[in-house]
Nucleic acid binder design. Structure first.
Length: 479
RNA sequence: CGGGGUGUGGCGCAGCUUGGUAGCGCGCAGCGAUCGGGACGCUGAGGUCGUGGGUUCGAAUCCCGCCACCCCGACCA
């Protein structure tokens, strides 16, 4: 519940972020280090994200399944790069039922191995391909420093796992799912993203290559918001995922995996939030509209609440997620509270509105009086739906304008330094070494975010090494 | 793991130097008033002072140990 002033994001962004997460009622602290409790309001938001993705997965031919939380330790070890990447952050169960286990069980940090093992059993023939699975699950990664939603020890996500007959199909799948992520994040979360290829030093442990969607937060840092991996035949070979082709030849499968987590909730907070708190995109908001009744006495109370009830029914009938705030607080308190919680549209209905057949609509994306206007009660559903679409579009437009204003082309290391120092994405021709990347990280704390899929074409000069370069890359400080 | 800091009602803190058995703000409950931008008044509930030991007639306060958490340096959806 909100009380008074929120830390100004311009002054202390990370403190502001924490306050918003807790005061907007998304989450609470948990007794377990690095873990959070997701409260109903936050979970509803996750549910909406989940549904937005799930229907896209189904539309692209995927099916959901569920695999065990525990993975035999030896499975992780079958793919060399994979173990190396994940072993520092594993939680391992060594005792079960009071007895030491013969083989320790890893609490899944991701499920390539145990799903790979199963897929190997299920795939015999080219007729069994492609195999397109997805799992909604919790995973555990023992991180050193955690932040609510952005990096927690346990987190919720989905992980897609697919097997294909050819490298081309696997690559097409990897890119298709990247597009699915981009579509959801851009169109539902209203956050613009840059689709890109991860540098080899940043790719998933065990993958051939990793694609990413990178978003810019309100403090101009980057947030990797979803990743899609072409795993090549690495896991297929480690788990004997083989099939007989049409010529009766035994072939290794080509696999992919792709994941998006509740980190996106953190992205929504940080990409849209402001000094009043959370600002939710209408398509994902648990409540798209909240009605605040206003009255001074029992007489007014009766007529106002009648009108409110009518309004609510009309909106529900039009599939608007609406909530009536009947709490015994003053209206002003409620206005601030719902602004903190990011509700896109606030409807205020008082005695004067009952008289006039009107209702005051305030939009979260436009602060203060400017965002308020009168609507007619008679046609409320259509008007609110229109307003929600406007808000959705406006939020994306604002976030896009902000991002584009903070991407800078750099031609030298000095330029990169000053961009990173001032805040923003540095974009430039890149053909540097891994040592160069390490040095940039060391000296500026910026990392190679990706090679954007959209390239200018042609050739340039690497801003770091001075060597000829055929690709531009983006560097930024990231979460 | 190295450095710095903090543990006192749900939250944020004061009290500790100079021991005498706990207080403030917010929140919470009841009543009243109020209600178109967080007003208010009265009454009230709620605390083994992180934990174990020691000193003392007496410890939130002094001493020793431990634990937890936070911030800063080496990993990441």
């Amino acid at each position: 519940m909100s009380t008074q002033a929120l830390t100004n994001p311009a002054v202390d962004f990370s403190e502001w972020y924490n306050e918003v997460v807790y005061r907007a009622d998304l989450a609470d602290h948990s007794p377990v280090r690095g873990c959070i409790i997701v409260k109903p309001y936050g979970y509803e938001l996750w549910d909406n994200i989940k549904n937005a993705l799930d229907r896209r997965f189904k539309a692209t031919g995927h099916q959901n399944a569920y695999f065990p939380l525990f993975i035999p330790k030896s499975y992780l070890e079958r793919e060399a790069e994979h173990v190396e990447g994940f072993s520092p952050e594993l939680a391992v169960v060594t005792i079960g039922g009071g007895k030491a286990l013969e083989e320790p069980l890893v609490v899944r940090p991701t499920s390539e191995t145990i799903i790979g093992e199963a897929m190997a059993k299920w795939i015999q023939s080219y007729r069994d391909l492609p195999l397109l699975l997805n799992q909604w699950a919790n995973v555990v990664r023992w991180e050193m420093r955690t932040r609510p939603f952005l990096r927690t020890t346990e987190f919720l996500w989905q992980e897609g796992h697919t097997a294909h007959a050819t490298e081309e199909e696997a690559e097409a799948e990897t890119l298709q799912m990247l597009d699915v992520y981009a579509d959801m994040v851009v169109n539902d979360a209203a956050i613009p993203v840059i689709r890109g290829l991860k540098h080899e030093t940043e790719k998933f442990a065990g993958a051939l290559r990793t694609y990413t969607i990178e978003a810019m937060m309100g403090d101009k840092r980057a947030l990797q918001s979803g990743t899609s991996h072409n795993l090549g035949q690495n896991f297929a070979k480690a788990f004997n995922m083989q099939y007989l082709d049409k010529n009766n030849q035994l072939q290794n499968c080509w696999t992919t995996s792709w994941g998006l987590s509740w980190r996106v909730i953190g992205g929504i907070v940080m990409a849209h939030g402001d000094e009043k708190g959370l600002k939710l995109p209408p398509r994902l908001a648990p409540y798209q509209a909240v009605i605040v009744p206003i009255f001074r006495n029992d007489d007014e109370r009766g007529t106002v609440l009648d009108a409110v009830e009518t309004l609510k029914k009309a909106l529900l009938a039009a599939d608007v997620r609406v909530h009536v705030d009947n709490r015994d607080y003053q209206p002003g308190y409620k206005f601030n509270d719902w602004e903190m919680r990011g509700v896109p549209v606030r409807l205020e209905l008082g005695p004067r509105d009952v008289q006039n057949g009107t209702v005051v609509a305030g939009r979260r994306d436009i602060p203060g009086k400017e965002g308020k206007r009168f609507l007619q009660q008679a046609d409320i559903a259509a008007q609110v739906k229109l307003l929600l679409e406007e808000i959705q579009a406006n939020m994306l437009a604002q976030a896009t304008a902000f991002r584009d204003a903070n991407i800078f082309d750099v031609h030298s290391y000095d330029e990169l330094r000053s961009v990173v120092e001032a805040g923003g994405f540095a974009r430039g021709w890149w053909n540097g070494s891994n040592e160069d990347i390490a040095r940039i990280k060391q000296e500026t704390s910026a990392t190679h975010r990706c090679y954007p899929l959209e390239q200018p074409g042609g050739e340039g000069v690497c801003f770091m090494s001075g060597k000829p370069a055929s690709q531009i890359a983006i560097f930024a400080r990231a979460y």
